[in-house]
């Protein structure tokens, strides 16, 4: 297949950018009309933060619990932020399924809309939701008494890591939506992947207290990369090399996933 474009190559990135802005605008208008989704997505994390945080308050006192200095709530908050990002982004593909169902997808695919922009727009939309939700969770944790000595830069890194995690899994979810075109399949796959990803990370428990194989597996888990970066940045004296290394891993995964997911449009076309 030829990759020649009508416009000179130098204007192509501008087109992708402009189309991303138009398409993200459409998604944000929908969110503005139905903000309930944003609020509904916060119910579960707040329960985790406040109930789970209370119930397991004493685990930080277990011998071997490494990051327990600021209490369990400070330990748990980055985990809950990432969990919310992970669960929300796993649903990202439903927007595509809705577009396919409503015929909007076919109309966009017969227009010059850039496929890359169609992918970027849904990812950006999920990312914006993650920023809002993460901020709300951090504020609730602060109100509940978490100290967060890392201050604004710690919160900034937490949100950045959450956004990168969102981008990875919304691209994956979009790709699954394009390849399967089935709501039931998408839901099944996201439920089978999100829970193991969460429990194979230190989101809710220090992995020093887990069997060593869990720790080894977690090293390859983007969820763990995000939790480690955020938790480290929240400390009074963060080890910045750890933070940047994990953010770098996340960013690389975003690029790979976004590229592969955009390729899924080709498979979609071939199977139409």
């Amino acid at each position: 297949m030829s990759t020649v474009h009508t416009k000179p190559l130098c204007t192509r990135p501008m087109t992708v950018l402009a189309h991303s802005v138009f398409l993200t605008g459409r998604l944000l208008r929908t969110l503005r009309r139905m903000p309930t989704f944003l609020v509904m997505g916060l119910v579960q994390p707040v329960i985790w933060l406040l109930l789970f945080g209370q119930l397991f308050r004493a685990v930080v006192n277990l011998p071997g619990f490494a990051h327990g200095g600021g209490g369990f709530l400070q330990f748990l908050t980055p985990g809950v932020v990432m969990m919310t990002a992970l669960f929300a982004s796993a649903w990202s593909g439903t927007a595509y399924l809705q577009d396919i169902d409503r015929g909007v997808m076919d109309r966009l695919l017969t227009s010059p809309a850039s496929r890359g922009a169609m992918m970027c727009a849904t990812m950006a939309y999920q990312g914006i939701q993650t920023v809002i939700q993460s901020l709300i969770i951090v504020v609730i944790a602060l109100l509940a008494g978490a100290p967060f000595p890392g201050g604004p830069s710690g919160v900034g890194v937490t949100i950045l890591a959450a956004v990168l995690l969102t981008l990875i899994f919304s691209a994956l979810s979009n790709a699954i939506a394009l390849l399967t075109r089935q709501q039931a399949t998408l839901i099944a796959i996201s439920q089978f992947t999100t829970l193991p990803l969460m429990f194979l990370s230190s989101a809710v428990m220090d992995l020093h207290l887990a069997p060593s194989w869990v720790g080894h597996v977690a090293e390859y888990n983007p969820m763990e990369w995000a939790v480690v970066a955020a938790r480290q940045a929240m400390l009074a004296h963060p080890d910045w090399s750890t933070v940047w290394a994990h953010l770098g891993l996340l960013a690389a995964a975003v690029l790979v996933m976004a590229f592969l997911a955009t390729r899924a449009f080709r498979t979609y076309r071939k199977s139409t």
């Binding site: 929908t30 409503r102 015929g103 076919d106 109309r107």
Partner: peptide, 17 residues
């Protein structure tokens, strides 16, 4: 895609907009 307009059998409008 730049040369064509496409009106499918199914509606293709975004009902929320």
């Amino acid at each position: 895609r730049q040369a064509i307009g496409f009106v499918a059998q199914k509606p293709g409008t975004d009902p929320m907009e």
